[in-house]
Design a protein around this nucleic acid. Structure first.
Lengths: 235, 235
DNA sequence: CGTGTCATTTTGTGATCACAAATTTAACGT
DNA sequence: ACGTTAAATTTGTGATCACAAAATGACACG
């Protein structure tokens, strides 16, 4: 296995402000971004072990920053440190899934409504653009792009709230179900996926709080419902 | 300043099962427990910087495990890494406080109700013992003991749920407001504190879900209300 | 052909080092 | 005296090393 393509490490250096490339925690930020986006787009599969040295080599950095990033993600329950110290991405169980769903339904509509008043016409245009892109990817079956864009759509709204508390909690939840989500899409495809994004956009246009809550709630229920049915027939 | 007493590092070695002392992550577990309990009992004050080498020396370990623990706690928003890399415990703002309160009200009653069916008569006795202890500490004004016991009371209930998702979220929230809570108690004392613990215990005895929700909700509202009023007149 | 045992390799952990950025302290000139 | 600059210290970061536990593979034995 000589030429195994690295699944992470996107461009040589496209990091903008979110990942300062010459600042204090440069390498750590790069690793953190890489692993996070890898988790959110499903490039890590549940149950699979993640080794410090492996990731470090793959990203071309020393094990040091990788150690810290993995600890961070373990603290967010995106990774699981087994009693023997081994790190793996946790596999989904019925109990965990139900809890994630419950937490999402409690927090995300709330944060969306909190963000509502800060979303303007420009944001509506941006969200529409993302949603159009999503519709294309859905039909073409590009699961990874779909997951990235769906995440972008939701967090575009949530981030507008300026939240420093609820947003990280929701972030943690997405990191927890995203890898499992990916395995399901790999099995059943993305063709028959439906979302409530257009209803959400309309609610934002009209600054209708209850309607936005309803749209987000329905969107979560729809998307997670598909996953919930698949959770029983695991290998 | 020669003989500054170490505020952390409780006994020489009282670590039981929650902190395995000879296992894989021994030192890290010890550091994690020490800092966490330090945060929850208010031994760290908001705005105060926390240095890696300082903590390491205070705990008698190398800087390495401290680095990882601080990163973990930063991921849980219990600590804040400033752009220059400096680590400090974040100070409370009105916006943050409102969000924490909102999140607590959304999550904690839910998890309490989830735990309700798993709480038996023995648990009622244990909770009653804790609550009696709390009442004593309240009158004697021992803020640190009060905070530790209040945390113990709530998490005794929450932990019974067996939750792996909601519980960590709530954990993160407590770590965020606890240090601020401590500074307020240091200013106004603990004498005029009221809680709804007895109502909660009664609800558990009668396995009354709505009543338990109401008690937890009221307890949060009461306790946080006192803090909310004090947040404006900060130094 | 399956099974237990042992050597080899891999992996996480804790410690130490070197370096650069940032803070603090000291010194200096105005 | 006060503000500015320069030296000295502190601090976080990334890398490397040594070690023990664990996983993996090879191998012999039943």
């Amino acid at each position: 296995m000589a030429v195994r393509r690295s699944a992470l490490k996107s461009g040589p250096s496209k990091a903008a402000t979110p990942t300062p490339s010459t600042s204090r925690g440069a390498t750590r930020g790069q690793v953190d971004t890489a692993v996070r986006s890898g988790l959110l787009t499903g490039r890590f599969i549940p149950g699979k072990a993640v080794t410090i040295r492996g990731l470090a080599a793959e990203l071309g950095v020393s094990p040091m920053p990788v150690r810290e990033v993995l600890q961070r993600l373990a603290a967010e329950n995106a990774l699981e440190v087994k009693p023997n110290g081994r790190i793996q991405i946790p596999d989904m169980t019925r109990g965990r899934f139900d809890e994630v769903l419950k937490a999402r339904l409690l927090l995300e509509p709330e944060l969306a409504e909190l963000a509502l008043s800060k979303l303007t016409g420009n944001d509506v245009k941006a969200l529409t653009a993302i949603d159009d892109d999503i519709d294309q990817r859905l039909t073409s079956g590009d699961a990874e792009a779909y997951m990235r864009l769906n995440h972008a759509f939701h967090f575009y709204i949530y981030r507008a709230s300026g939240s420093k508390v609820l947003l990280p909690l929701i972030d943690s939840l997405w990191l927890q179900f995203a890898p499992f989500m990916r395995t399901v899409y790999g099995r059943v495809g993305t063709a028959n996926l439906v979302d409530q994004h257009k209803e959400a956009i309309r609610a934002i246009e009209q600054q209708d709080g209850p309607a936005l809550r309803a749209a987000i709630t329905a969107d979560i229920t729809d998307g997670m419902g598909l996953l919930g049915k698949e959770i029983l027939l695991k290998a």
